[in-house]
Design a protein around this nucleic acid. Sequence first.
DNA 1: GTCTATAAGTCGATAGAC
DNA 2: GTCTATCGACTTATAGAC
Lengths: 195, 195
Amino acid sequence: MARTQGSHSHVTGPRIRQAALRLFARHGYAAVSMRQIASEVGLQAGALYNYTPDKQALLLSLMTGHLEDLLARSARAEGTGPAEARLEAFVRFHIAYHLDRPDEVFIAYMELRNLEPDHFAQVEALRRRYEDRLEAILAAGRDEGVFDVPDTKIATLAVIAMLTGVTTWYRPAGRLSADAVAGLYWDMVRKTVAA
Amino acid sequence: MARTQGSHSHVTGPRIRQAALRLFARHGYAAVSMRQIASEVGLQAGALYNYTPDKQALLLSLMTGHLEDLLARSARAEGTGPAEARLEAFVRFHIAYHLDRPDEVFIAYMELRNLEPDHFAQVEALRRRYEDRLEAILAAGRDEGVFDVPDTKIATLAVIAMLTGVTTWYRPAGRLSADAVAGLYWDMVRKTVAA
DNA sequence: GTCTATAAGTCGATAGAC
DNA sequence: GTCTATCGACTTATAGAC
């Protein structure tokens, strides 16, 4: 039974992260001020510094949090079957996850250039690990003889770019459901790598 | 024989645009100040306003200039043959053009959210016209019976996303030439839409 | 066409009261 | 933990001298 304190740090922290995420995605990291974030949460700007050492650390934390979650969940979704089954699971997972978290996906890609060099390297390493998961599937399928992929690295980047592109146009109220979209993309990916 | 004037407006204007393009692509529109652009060209900030009414107009002009050039050149590259030949021409043109102008491509996509609503609509209309060119090719191929494309709109967006993705990883000094990359992508696109 | 100077406001971050 | 107040630096854009 934790004693009720005058503070709300356990709820304020997440609310700050959520507000920052939304504003960064909408207007861009450089265009959003700490005062705007604070105002969104109902605080004064100075109070934010109880939760983050500075604005840059807030951005970094949003990006690494997203990519670590992406990695952990993709591993669970992928399973251990034959390459084609793992590829289908990867495609359907990737689309569902990305359509569910458009803001996270957006800043993890668009705000890379606002990261200081050390932080950029950290984020790039996580992204690279995700790409490597897909490349391993393509290489396995080629070895099994079910995929024809002349260059697994290029094919990996091409497939990820194609799939991630859904976030630029998909709207929940649009003519296709997320599942229908995933089905169409899986058809295209399957043909792209088919032997 | 135009009289030599004390001014250099015919050369200063393009140099300002070039500096702005490079800086916007590198650091983002919101993170770049007019002073930085001026300094890059060897001017004081105030002098920039002889060439653009404000910072926003400079960004808009860079984006529309790029997209209008893209549209005009793609029309010439595409030709009038059968659908598969036009698709191959489109793919090879798109990759060559994008690898040649990474900064223009980057800001035309990344800085959309820094456009005022009217300007955003203007840029989106140009982008849409480019997408429509590809969709027309896919629809023609389906009618000819050489392509199997269940949803031409989705296929259009998927192919463009896949192709444009090259700009995020391609480096001229890398292991593959631009032509080799275009060949690999053409193989993948061909399979993606194949009947 | 470019300069200097300036207006009028915003920025990130900190200090200290409560 | 949050507030108010503030520092010093920076911002876009304009005015007027040359």
